[in-house]
């Protein structure tokens, strides 16, 4: 790299990462409103820890994230397996539609889901959030798992069949171990997608079931709050952990 490209490179990196550094830094700032450094404190973290409402919405988000991640991964595995194993009419269409779901604007999906739930008279709360989150996580799960299956030797299943494995045994002993890392990555990805979703959740949640991102959104509208900085820093830490784990899992393909 010559000097010009090197400086440009650092500039781009700075542009990308300075906001995060600022958030983390200000989460330790000993001042309620000022954007000037007033010294070091843990107080925002401790305040966060004792916030009962925040604990409640975090719990909501965790429940939602886990259940959506689990169900979307299970369904993703079934769909990927069908796409992999069987050649049926409309197979390519389904693959294509799943990609459309990945790039479709959140707003469109949110409004579509809201209208659907309204017209079906489903009361807005956990159920609607759960269904919405599964439907936007599923395409990602299918993508991750299908990608892994495309490297899988199709003869493995024939071999298992030839050796007398029932359909259940083929799943349990061959498919799941072969997909194991992809299943974990799919679950982590779905969890993260669900955990930080605002747009879709905003349209399909009810007053009794507010999620963490919706709560933060409401808090932020009331003005700068160091508590949010602390929360964002924690979420950042969580994200980095998830990325590291999934990279390790994808890196070593068993």
């Amino acid at each position: 790299m010559n000097r010009l490209t090197r400086s440009l490179f650092f500039l781009v990196m700075a542009f990308l990462y300075i906001p995060m550094v600022v958030v983390v830094l200000f989460s330790f700032n000993h001042s309620l409103h000022s954007l000037i450094w007033h010294g070091w404190t843990w107080q925002w973290y401790s305040k966060l820890w004792h916030d009962a409402l925040l604990a409640k919405v975090t719990w909501h988000s965790l429940c939602l994230g886990f259940s959506a991640a689990f169900i979307s991964t299970v369904l993703g595995a079934v769909v990927s397996y069908s796409l992999y194993r069987y050649r049926f009419f409309g197979r390519r269409l389904i693959s294509g539609l799943l990609i459309v779901l990945i790039v479709i604007p959140d707003l469109v999906m949110a409004i579509a889901l809201m209208i659907l739930f309204r017209s079906a008279h489903v009361s807005f709360g956990f159920v609607t959030l759960f269904l919405a989150h599964v439907s936007f996580c599923l395409p990602f799960s299918v993508m991750v798992i299908s990608n892994r299956l495309s490297d899988l030797n199709p003869q493995l299943l024939l071999a298992a069949e030839d050796l007398g494995a029932s359909l259940w045994q083929q799943w349990w002993w061959v498919m799941i171990p072969a997909m194991r890392s992809a299943l974990l990555v799919s679950a982590l990805l779905s969890f993260m997608l669900s955990f930080d979703d605002v747009v879709i959740s905003f349209f399909v949640s009810g007053p009794n079931y507010v999620t963490l991102p919706l709560h933060v959104y409401a808090m932020a509208k009331l003005g700068a709050n160091p508590e949010i900085n602390a929360l964002c820093s924690l979420l950042l830490l969580l994200t980095v952990a998830v990325v590291l784990i999934s990279q390790r899992l994808l890196g070593k393909k068993t």
Binding site: N153, Q155, L156, A160, D162, L163, G164, T254
Partner: peptide
């Protein structure tokens, strides 16, 4: 029984587990 193209051994199983697959079934 069949020996497949390039053997199609289960990569995530040890030799003993591969060989014993039909018995476990």
């Amino acid at each position: 029984n069949m020996v497949f193209q390039n053997y199609a051994l289960f990569p995530f199983m040890s030799v003993a587990d591969n060989v014993g697959f039909a018995l476990r079934c």
